[in-house]
C-alpha cells in the first residue's frame, strides 16, 4: 500500500484526474467544489497542462468539448446550478461521442438552493440531463479515496466508450478530509487510440466531429448506434457494493455519502439483532438493476435512503418490479439523514 495523504474529497478528485493523465481542466467557481478548481489550477500549471477559469460553466464545458475533440483527457467540475448550465455541452458531447469527465459536487436545490450537501441531481445525472436520447456514465463515490479512484476510472471508461462520464459527489464528500492513498490503475491518455481526434488532416482524410445529421434517417441510425453502445455499457460496467446480501430481512439502498451513514445504521441494526443489509450502487448509470432484482427474489423489504425527495427510489422500484415492498426515507435542502433516523426507519419497517 502506498503512502496516505490527508486531503479533502475535492482535492482527491483532482488528483485522481491528474493520475489518469488529464491535461486540461476548465471550471468556474461555485461552492462546495471550489477546492477542486483551485487544486487543478495549481497542478495543471505545475505539470504543464492547461487550466482555464472560464467565463461561465457553459464556456467551461465547451472548452472541455474542444480539448477532448483534440484527443486529450479533459475535465470540468461544478456544483448543481453550474451542472444545469453544463447540460448543453454534455448533450453535444454525447451526440458527438466525445469523452470527458464532469464532476458534480452536489448542493441543495432547486434554484440557488444552498451550499449544503444534497442528492437532488440524481435524475438529471442518470436520465441524460440535457436534450435528446443519451446517457452519461455516472459514478457515485462515497469517500475521498473513491473520489480519487472513481475520477481516474471515469477517464478510462469515458475514453473506452467515447462517452461523457460524470462523478456524482456531494458537498459532504467534497469538503471532508480523509487519508487518501495516491494510486491509479488508469492507462493514461492514448492519443493513438483516438483516430477520430482533430489533429489537422496531415496524411489522412479530414476528421469531422459533429452531432448534426440532417440526411433522411441518418440521425435515427446514429441514435440506434448510441443505444447499442449504451447497452454494451449496461452489460459490462455495472458496479455495486453489497453488505449482508445473503441473509438479510431488509436491505437499505443508498449511494454516496448517504451509503456511508446507512452502513453504520445497518451495523447498529445488526447489533440489535435485525438482519439488515446494504446495497450501494457505485455506478448510478448503468444502474445495478439486475443485482437488486435478484435480491428482491429473497428479501421482501427495502428501504431507500437519499438526500432528496425520492429519486433513485424510482429506479429501485423499477428494478424490483413489485416483488418486494420498497420504503423511502429522504431529507432535502441540505438535511443529512442521521444513523439514528435511518435505524428508526429500519426498525419501523422490518
Amino acid at each position: 500500500m502506498g503512502k496516505k495523504i490527508l486531503m479533502c474529497g475535492n482535492d482527491a478528485c483532482g488528483e485522481g484526474a491528474m493520475l489518469a493523465g488529464c491535461t486540461f481542466y476548465a471550471g468556474y467557481p461555485i461552492t462546495p467544489q471550489n477546492e477542486l478548481t483551485a487544486y487543478m489550477a495549481r497542478r495543471m500549471v505545475d505539470t504543464g497542462g492547461t487550466f482555464i477559469q472560464a467565463e461561465s460553466e457553459l464556456a467551461a464545458i465547451n472548452m472541455v468539448l474542444g480539448a477532448s475533440a483534440s484527443g486529450f483527457r479533459a475535465m470540468t467540475s461544478s456544483s448543481s446550478p453550474g451542472i444545469s448550465l453544463k447540460q448543453e455541452g454534455i448533450s453535444y458531447m454525447a451526440g458527438c461521442e466525445l469523452p470527458g469527465v464532469i464532476v458534480n459536487i452536489q448542493r441543495g436545490g432547486p434554484g440557488l438552493g444552498n451550499i449544503a450537501p444534497a442528492q437532488g441531481d440524481y435524475f438529471q445525472s442518470v436520465k441524460g440531463g440535457g436534450h435528446g436520447d443519451y446517457k452519461v456514465i455516472v459514478l457515485a463515490p462515497a469517500s475521498a479515496q473513491e473520489l480519487l479512484d472513481h475520477t481516474s476510472l471515469a477517464f478510462d471508461l469515458s475514453d473506452k466508450y467515447r462517452n461523457p462520464a460524470l462523478i456524482l459527489g456531494d458537498g459532504l464528500l467534497g469538503q471532508m478530509m480523509e487519508p487518501v492513498e495516491i494510486r491509479t490503475q488508469s492507462s493514461g491518455n492514448n492519443i493513438h487510440n483516438k483516430p477520430w481526434a482533430l489533429t489537422g488532416c496531415a496524411g489522412r482524410k479530414p476528421n469531422i466531429i459533429k452531432s448534426l445529421f440532417l440526411g433522411d434517417g441518418v440521425l435515427e441510425a446514429h441514435n440506434v448506434k448510441l443505444q447499442q453502445k449504451y447497452n454494451t455499457i449496461k452489460a459490462a460496467e455495472v458496479r455495486v457494493e453489497m453488505i449482508n446480501s445473503k441473509d438479510s430481512d431488509i436491505m437499505v439502498v443508498a449511494y454516496g455519502s448517504v451509503a456511508r451513514i446507512s452502513k453504520a445504521a445497518v451495523a447498529k441494526a445488526r447489533a440489535k439483532g435485525i438482519k439488515a443489509g446494504l446495497i450501494r450502487p457505485i455506478t448510478l448509470w448503468p444502474f445495478p438493476e439486475k443485482a437488486i432484482s435478484e435480491i428482491a427474489d429473497k428479501v421482501k423489504k427495502f428501504l431507500v435512503v437519499e438526500m432528496s425527495a425520492g429519486q433513485m427510489v424510482e429506479d429501485v422500484r423499477l428494478a424490483i418490479c413489485g416483488k418486494a415492498k420498497v420504503s423511502f426515507y429522504g431529507r432535502m435542502g441540505g438535511g443529512i439523514p442521521t444513523e439514528g433516523e435511518i435505524l428508526a426507519q429500519i426498525e419501523k419497517i422490518v
Partner: peptide, 17 residues
C-alpha cells in the same frame, strides 16, 4: 478537420482546441 459547437460556444470550443 472541422468540429461543431453549440450555438455561441464556438470561441470556447476553439479555446479548448
Amino acid at each position: 478537420d472541422v468540429t461543431e459547437a453549440p450555438h455561441g460556444r464556438t470561441p470556447a470550443v476553439a479555446t479548448g482546441i
